[in-house]
């Protein structure tokens, strides 16, 4: 009995410490964002939260970042996922090199990537467009390590070779095999990878700031220079948005027990 209590106390202590580590800064942000703007004022105010919608730059940057995230997701769905499936199905020898290639953005600091990619974006902004949406290209590269790991784990968990062969013998062509059979089978992996990608796109600052694009995070930083309370309110909102997104990642449900196992 004593031991059980000891374990319980130990468990709850850990949860409390970790919870405090995560929640205290969030509370501090909330506290700061609801403080009156002037030092003399006392009490609480939601003015910082209320004026968020009136910040036109901010609203435009949110829309841009969401569009960019959407484009990145499309690239994941129509380029990265089919490529990963193709490599797993048809080019097993390329699996290791492909994996290494996908993990590279993790090993290279963002600042190095941006220095390397800056001339290309300079050319794009001069000759094509200045829209921050073009950042979806470099973001698709940055999200590769997370998306690929998630996809690879999902692809390894099922016998996609047999599924693909079964579909082919039934009359399915390659695109039907990939989009109709394999992709729905690894849906959880795709959703996980996509959500992580959205979180990364919404939170990215270094590259967009150095390349001088006004994305969500860059605009927050700019607001922060003039009005700290609003900047913190927006940051908190964005953290909560991403948190909700991550919590929405479907956890693997316990599969129901096999029914009627006595039947052949």
């Amino acid at each position: 009995m004593k031991r059980t209590w000891g374990v319980r106390i130990w468990r709850w202590s850990i949860i409390a410490v970790v919870g405090a580590y995560l929640l205290v800064p969030l509370y501090a942000m909330f506290d700061f964002s609801t403080k009156p703007f002037g030092f003399q004022d006392k009490g609480r105010t939601f003015r910082a939260w209320q004026i968020i919608p009136s910040q036109q730059d901010l609203m435009i940057s949110i829309a841009r970042s969401l569009i960019t995230a959407g484009i990145v997701m499309s690239l994941i769905l129509f380029l990265i996922v089919p490529t990963a499936i193709w490599v797993h199905l048809k080019l097993p020898l390329l699996r290791r090199p492909f994996e290494l290639l996908c993990l590279l953005p993790l090993a290279i600091p963002a600042i190095v990537i941006v220095v390397g990619i800056a001339p290309l974006y300079r050319w794009i902004s001069i000759h094509l467009t200045e829209s921050p949406i073009t950042l979806s290209g470099v973001y698709s590269m940055l999200i590769l390590p997370y998306t690929y790991r998630s996809l690879s784990a999902a692809l390894d968990a099922v016998d996609i070779h047999t599924l693909a062969e079964a579909a082919r013998t039934l009359g399915a062509n390659t695109s039907r095999v990939i989009f109709g059979i394999i992709m729905p089978t690894i849906k959880t992996g795709i959703v996980n990878g996509s959500f992580i990608a959205i979180a990364l796109v919404m939170g990215e600052f270094t590259i967009s700031n150095i390349l001088n694009y006004k994305t969500f995070q860059v605009v927050i930083a700019q607001i922060g220079r003039t009005n700290g309370n609003v900047a913190v309110a927006v940051s908190l909102a964005s953290i909560l948005f991403v948190l909700v997104l991550l919590l929405a990642i479907p956890t693997k449900k316990r599969r129901s027990a096999v029914l009627d196992v006595d039947l052949v």
């Binding site: 099922v158 599924l163 039934l170 009359g171």
Partner: peptide
């Protein structure tokens, strides 16, 4: 293979996991 019209049953379980038994049968 997709044009040969051969029905195949594999050693490994090969039903499409996101489809019901009926949908699996109807797939082809």
């Amino acid at each position: 293979a997709n044009k040969r019209g051969m029905g195949m049953v594999f050693q490994a379980y090969s039903l499409f996991p996101h489809m019901t038994a009926r949908e699996n049968v109807e797939y082809g």
